[in-house]
Design a protein around this nucleic acid. Sequence first.
DNA 1: AGAATTTGACCGGC
DNA 2: GCCGGTCAAATTCT
Length: 350
Amino acid sequence: MASSGGARSPAAVVLDDLVDVRDRVAMLQTVLQESSPGATVEAGELVEGMTAKLSSALSAVLGTGDGSVASSSSGAGGGPGGRRRRTGAASSGPHRRSSSRGRMKSPLIKTVTATTLTDGKSWRKYGQKQINDSTNPRSYYRCTHLPDQGCKAKRHVHVSEANPSEYTIDYYGQHTCRDPSTFPSLIVQGAADTAPPPDCANLISFAPINGANRAFTASTSTSAFAHHLMKEPVDHHPMLFSQFSNYSSSPPAQEGIPSGSSSRACHERFMQYAGGQFVDITGRSTSPLTVGSAPAEYWPVVGVAGVDMDAGAGMDSFPSSPSSLGFMSGSLGGSFGNTVCDDDLFSFDS
DNA sequence: AGAATTTGACCGGC
DNA sequence: GCCGGTCAAATTCT
């Protein structure tokens, strides 16, 4: 849907957006420095990280980006095993499918290295295969909403060879589904108290939790959601975390449930940003998550290098609010950061 | 009972 | 012919 620009190339659009965002981050950092210095140290670190990543993304867009995360894998593969072999009925059965099924491969949207398979989306595993140059099998997932909503998003997962506790996930195609259940409320502490401007529908806030450290949340600023403050079903938002943790100085993400069974992976946690990393309030330190290829892919959906981005909402699956977290879902022409007072903003409440 | 996963076979591109 | 991606029956899980 990225109708952001008429004749401009997708790469050019991404580049412009990245430049714009970088500039805004710089401005934001200045503002932070002028406010309460002590309280903004961590935020400043985050901004620095974001800036660095933006620069990296720009470099990639400008031609150097290889875009691929060295993959491979090893170690105890995702082989759950344990299931009995099926009786040979169907294996040797008649025609299992029609002649042509057109194997059009969706464009690679992004490659992510993560310690969790949960990313806020509902995935359904449809295959697993041992890949030639990899010791671990590759698992194939597609969006749960393929049948009902025609969502063509897919992802390929394999265990990192360097670090068996990590997964390298390749995302293909954009989500076109709307799945409120997979993206519960995201609320900001400051949103309730500070009454954000009406034209700022979405915001991301670093606000204190119970007087403790800073919490990282994001949400619509609608007061109706205020009671959800701080209660972050992180397992449903690792992707969200990846957006920002990747731009922070010490990016962590929550570790996840092994299986891709999204319907079962639904335990909530309270997350805080403390000491340079996200920590869930249960005391567990979160694990790192990095974006391997183009960070820009996490940003407003625009075409990149021929990638078909007309899939509408891009990173969607948001609740009723049409653009909650527009930062991620900004599919309307990649508008993030295009206006001074956009629908999206960062709020570093103290 | 329905949903999700497993896993060998099938298919198309190189 | 090889290899990666997908299909779909069987199996398991909730």
